[in-house]
Each structure stands twice: as structure tokens, then as C-alpha cells.
Simulated scan of single mutants.
Amino acid sequence: MVMPMLGLKGSSDQQQIDDRLQYHPDVYEFYTSAADFTPEGYQRLDEAVQYVQSKGIQRIVIHHPMVYHEWHSEVVAPEKNFPELYRFIETSTEQLIALAKKRNIQVLVHGGYAGKEVQEMVSLYPSVEKARQAVYKRLDRFAKAGGQHIMFENSIAPVFAYGHPEQEDEILSHNYRLAFDTSHCFIEMHGDNQALQASLKHLRDHVVHYHLVDSMGQTHDSLQLGKGKIDWAPVLKLLNPNASSIYEINLHDQWNCREQVESHRYLTNIAKKLMQGEQRES
């Protein structure tokens, strides 16, 4: 077990970046929106990446935009039914991969999101399995294009969820570089800590990045660590020590990352107690 790293998330807004950088994080993850993919927005995002790098932060992740107009950026969306959304996901992913290669950073793409929207999209396929295969086919293309610069995050949706061993085996067969959101898996498993731990253990060697987030295990609540029902001590022992991580917590104020920093303090205290216990046993 290693001590958790300080990973913070914010947009390319200078005030948000400077708020995060005052804590000297090990990892910075950029939140993006559709506005970052206009020529001006893309230039601003590139400049923001370079600024963060100039402060000595080498581990940088750019999160693919969550929404486009009224839709979530669902890779399962069929092109014939959602041509504009489909094209946006294609072009924005291409842009992010190009930026990631140029600046030697990482891109995170969601395998899916959650809710009625994705259910309606999945229903446009003959079966859930057909919808899932369509997602894999698209992610296979992105993986080939992005190489060691792209990763895929789990959802609370039937097309790309962790927690189900058979589905995890299928995901592993594609040899994807994985991002693991603890809250998404916990919610998918209806608040079952043992199932979360089994998934962390099963996927560990393929995970390159974690979103450390607490949850009550029912809905997408994105809680500060210690405020939900995840048992963090076993989780700490199951993280891939070579992976990066951030605290993806809902903030009261987007220009103050207090809840992310307090989550790190909480997890670090648990890690210290675990290490002290290990030292006593040895």
C-alpha cells in the first residue's frame, strides 16, 4: 500500500486552476465542456495545460465533456438517431487525443453515464448486448487512436459498468486502459462494499486512474470521502500503486476545492493508521 496522492479537479478557468495549485497537487484533472472545443476554447485549454505543466505537475488528465447540448456524451448513441451528438463525440475525442499526444498527458472518456437518457438510447438496439458491443466497437477505435494516452471510465449504465464479473472479463478482453470511479461501482452494486472490493481487485492491473468518490450507494451523489458508506480502508489496499487518482467531489463553490482537499486529508489519515498497524505487526 502507498500513501494516496493529492489529485484535484477543475476547469481551464484561471481562478479555478490557481485555487487548486496552491495545494501543490500531484495530479490535475481538467473538467471540460463543449465550449472547450471551439477554436478559441481549444487554444485556451492547451494554454491551461501548459500553465499547469509549468508549475511542475506532470500527471494531467483531461475529462471528455459530460454533455453536449441537451444530451450526455453517450458513446452508445446511434449515429443515425443522434448524428450531431455522434459527430461531436468523434471530433472532440480526436481533438483531445491530439492534445494529449502533443503535451504527453491523458484523456478520459466515459463508457457511459446513467439515467433515462442512456436507457432510451440502449432501447434503440435489438438488445442490451448489441448496445454494449456497439460501445466496445467505438471504444476500440478510440483506444487504437489514443494508445497510451486514453482511458475509459465506468458508468452506472448497462453498457460499461464495473461490478459484474462477466462484464468485467469482457472489458478486460479488450485490454483497455481503465479509469475506475469508486462511487459508480458502489452505486451499480447497490451499496455493497464487498462487491466494490472484488471489482477493484479484479480490474486492478488494468486501472491507470481512479476517481475517489464517496456515495450512499443509491444515486449519483459524489460525496466527500467519509460522508458516504464506502469502507475506505480495504479500498486503499486494493488500489493499483502505479495509477494516478483524483477526488471527484461535488463542490459547494467551484472556485474553492475544500471538499477535495478534506477528502485527501481523510484518506491520508486512514493510510497512516494502516501503515502503523502494518509496522506493529512486522
Rank of each mutant, 00 (worst) to 15 (best):
112 G>Y: 07
105 I>C: 10
207 V>C: 01
134 A>W: 03
244 S>Y: 01
191 G>W: 01
197 Q>S: 01
37 F>M: 03
237 K>F: 06
260 Q>F: 02
272 K>I: 11
215 S>P: 11
21 L>P: 03
41 G>F: 06
9 K>C: 12
5 M>Y: 04
16 Q>A: 12
68 Y>A: 00
267 L>K: 00
220 H>S: 03
273 K>M: 14
171 I>T: 04
229 K>R: 14
84 E>G: 02
33 S>C: 10
222 S>I: 09
120 E>K: 15
192 D>R: 05
272 K>D: 09
68 Y>Q: 00
276 Q>A: 14
4 P>T: 07
39 P>M: 00
192 D>Q: 08
30 F>P: 07
233 A>V: 07
257 C>F: 03
251 L>H: 06
156 I>V: 12
175 N>R: 12
196 L>H: 02
31 Y>C: 13
260 Q>K: 02
127 S>R: 01
66 M>G: 11
64 H>Q: 15
28 Y>H: 10
241 P>N: 00
24 H>F: 11
193 N>H: 01
221 D>H: 07
32 T>I: 10
6 L>M: 14
24 H>A: 13
237 K>Y: 01
87 R>E: 12
44 R>E: 11
269 N>M: 08
18 D>M: 15
137 K>I: 02
138 R>I: 02
189 M>Q: 13
221 D>W: 05
151 M>K: 13
202 H>M: 13
26 D>N: 15
136 Y>N: 11
159 V>L: 05
263 S>L: 11
99 L>H: 03
27 V>R: 09
191 G>V: 07
6 L>C: 02
149 H>M: 11
109 V>H: 01
261 V>G: 01
110 H>Q: 02
66 M>S: 08
204 R>S: 14
204 R>L: 04
111 G>T: 04
12 S>E: 08
100 A>S: 12
224 Q>P: 09
201 K>Y: 13
195 A>I: 07
51 Y>I: 11
239 L>F: 01
114 A>T: 14
193 N>E: 06
243 A>R: 07
3 M>F: 11
27 V>A: 04
6 L>G: 09
35 A>G: 14
201 K>D: 14
194 Q>C: 07
18 D>Y: 03
241 P>M: 04
16 Q>D: 08
177 R>A: 05
82 F>S: 02
74 E>H: 13
52 V>K: 02
170 E>D: 14
167 Q>T: 12
145 A>K: 14
263 S>P: 06
192 D>A: 10
233 A>H: 00
176 Y>M: 00
192 D>H: 12
252 H>D: 13
198 A>C: 00
